[in-house]
Design a protein around this nucleic acid. Structure first.
Length: 575
DNA sequence: AACGATACTTAGGACGCAGCGA
DNA sequence: TCGCTGCGTCCTAAGTATCGTT
């Protein structure tokens, strides 16, 4: 590959040491040398063939290229429910009209008179054709992707060739936020080289812009980790191209995150005593801070930054909870002082929980809610910045999110201790691991939509189990009769029958374990906690202790991300 | 203290393909 | 061999946190 001399030379000097064995940079400096090939742009728009028609008010209408492109975005989504939503249609139509010629604008005045069905059929046929492609054609595409990855998918950062996480620029399309997003349907515009800021080191070969184009800017800032950035037009926020989780720069940060959480472990008792004291404070702000922190600690809630109204879906975290999001029950189902939470969190995922709390917390909540409307802030004297400033005083580097990391990891460690049965075989031990993982996912409220095929696949599994049970019964009968025979005439037969029974029993157990695991996992996503909250060294140590191959717990990508932990952790590692 | 800009982590869903059993 | 399904990868949205300015 054509990465410059310097990168290649640097790499040659360091061949055996992994990044976690190298010296760390001084605070704030992220790298000394950075070279990359720049981003890959979305393929240009290909106009529709002449025979694919768009109809307005029942009549064929030929669209200008720009208007046609945006129309195809809508046509491709026609089967989705959200193209029927008022906000989506309104936002789309407004942005579409901006792309039209003045004649188009004066003709096309109502979205409901637009007929995209022919276009939609065309795209469906294209998808179908792609599926039907021959092996060779598919192979060709695969090779082209690999070539692109090889050329643009890596950079040189200091002594390492590193994988880039997202080297492709996001293609244009219609924005679809999560949940009830006020901007759904808006046009996400095409990003051009003129929008792009390149970041690399001065002594590197700066990537050339595509012919006939210029970069917006080339800068050399080694206080940041990104290679490329641009401003997106929906929220006006900045998007970045950064490195893969397997890279030094991400791995080191990840390691550091867990080390901070481990420092919290050492002082969490003190902090808990402190906030319990603060529940009694005469200052309202201090009480609110203490109750919020209690929720963050006990329930692993997110911090809850303020959001600009009307810019995003209406979701909340701890500090931004409103009165309408909780209900107080002095008594519920035989328990005292129960708080019922019901709100939409990140990604508009519902958080629903009924939690018994200390009397003091309950009384404080009643106080906070006095004379307030449902839409008022529960913690009106508090925000994340106040909370984090306080946390910083309690421990260096402590912020609200550290509690989630800490509680997730400590829960995994405890659960593994509790659930692992030394006498279990490997599949049963892995079930225990998944259950420990699941406890964390439930704590963090990591949900997923039940797979579309869930019921069906569950039934299939059940019928397999039934078949296996019958098979076992047969085998047992045969064993019995073989034993009866053996009284008269000793032979190998009963031994073999016994083995067969054992084998089938084992197979049955494996299936049953699988069924349990799948049922319990119906609406729970394990991967998010595994990837972001659980100190990988806990899992590595557990695998070493019980002789479980690491591949059973982490797939290839995960092993790459956690290579540092796999290398470092011994079986006696304690979080 | 409020605000806007910036940088970075965390998140669920779509989709495609490998591997498995019929 | 074929069809299904479950897993992994890709995608990019949506959070957290901090900093400088007013």
């Amino acid at each position: 590959n054509s990465l410059s001399q310097q990168g290649v030379l640097c790499r040659r000097y360091v061949t055996v040491m992994s990044w976690w064995e190298e010296e760390r940079y001084p605070e704030g400096i992220k790298w000394k040398f950075l070279e990359h090939k720049g981003p890959v742009f979305a393929p240009p728009y290909e106009p529709l063939p002449e025979n694919v028609k768009f109809y307005y008010d029942g009549k064929v209408m030929k669209l200008s290229t720009k208007a046609e492109e945006v129309a195809t975005f809508f046509a491709k989504m026609l089967d989705h429910e959200y193209t029927t939503k008022e906000i989506f249609r309104k936002n789309f139509f407004k942005d579409w009209r901006k792309e039209m010629t003045s004649e188009e604008k004066s003709t096309i005045t109502s979205l409901s008179k637009c007929d995209f069905t022919h276009m939609s059929q065309y795209f469906k046929a294209q998808t179908e054709a792609r599926k039907q492609m021959s092996k060779e054609e598919k192979q060709k595409i695969k090779e082209e992707n690999e070539r692109l990855l090889k050329e643009y998918g890596y950079c040189v950062m200091d002594n390492h060739k590193e994988r880039i996480a997202n080297f492709k620029i996001e293609p244009p399309g219609l924005f679809r936020g999560r949940g009830n997003h006020p901007k759904m349907g808006m046009l996400k515009r095409r990003i051009m080289p003129e929008d792009i800021i390149i970041n690399c080191s001065k002594d590197s070969k700066v990537p050339p812009p595509p012919p006939g184009h210029k970069w917006k800017e080339v800068r050399h800032d080694n206080k940041v980790t990104w290679l490329v950035s641009w401003t997106e037009n929906i929220q006006g926020s900045i998007k970045y191209i950064m490195l893969n989780p397997s890279s030094r720069i991400k791995g080191e940060k990840d390691w550091q995150k867990y080390e901070t959480a481990r420092r919290l472990k050492k002082c969490v008792d003190k902090i808990r005593n402190q906030y319990r004291e603060d529940w009694k404070s005469k200052e309202m702000k201090v009480r609110q801070r203490a109750v919020a922190l209690y929720f963050i600690d006990k329930l692993a809630l997110r911090a809850g930054n303020e959001k600009e109204e009307g810019e995003t879906a209406d979701t909340v975290g701890c500090c931004s909870l409103r009165v309408e999001h909780i209900k107080l029950h002095p008594e519920l189902d035989g328990q005292e002082y129960v708080v019922e939470f019901d709100f939409l969190g990140k990604d508009s995922i519902r958080y629903y929980n009924k939690v018994p709390v200390e009397k003091r917390v309950f009384k404080n909540l009643q106080l906070f809610m006095e004379n307030k409307q449902p839409e008022d802030d529960l913690f009106d004297r508090l925000n994340t910045s106040i909370l984090n400033k306080h946390l910083q005083d309690l421990m260096e580097g402590l912020t609200a999110k550290v509690f989630r990391t800490y509680n997730a990891s400590i829960t995994l460690q405890q659960q593994l201790k509790e659930l692992t049965n030394p006498d279990d075989n490997i599949p049963a031990k892995i079930l225990s691991y998944n259950r420990a993982n699941r406890a964390v996912a439930i704590l963090c409220n990591h949900q997923r939509a039940p797979p579309k095929t869930f019921e069906k696949s569950m039934m299939n599994l059940q019928s397999k189990i039934d078949a296996k049970k019958e098979q076992l019964a047969d085998a047992r009968r045969e064993l019995k009769s073989a034993k009866a025979d053996a009284k008269v005439r000793r032979d190998e037969k009963s031994k073999n029958k016994k083995k067969a029974v054992q084998r089938i029993e084992e197979q049955l157990m494996k299936l049953e374990v699988q069924a349990t695991d799948r049922e319990e996992n119906k609406q729970i996503a394990l991967s998010t906690s595994k990837l972001n909250y659980l100190d990988p060294r806990i899992s590595v140590a557990w695998c070493k202790k019980w002789g479980i191959p690491i591949e059973k717990i982490y797939n290839k990508t995960q092993r790459e991300k956690f290579a540092w932990a796999i290398d470092m952790a011994e079986e006696d590692y304690e979080f």
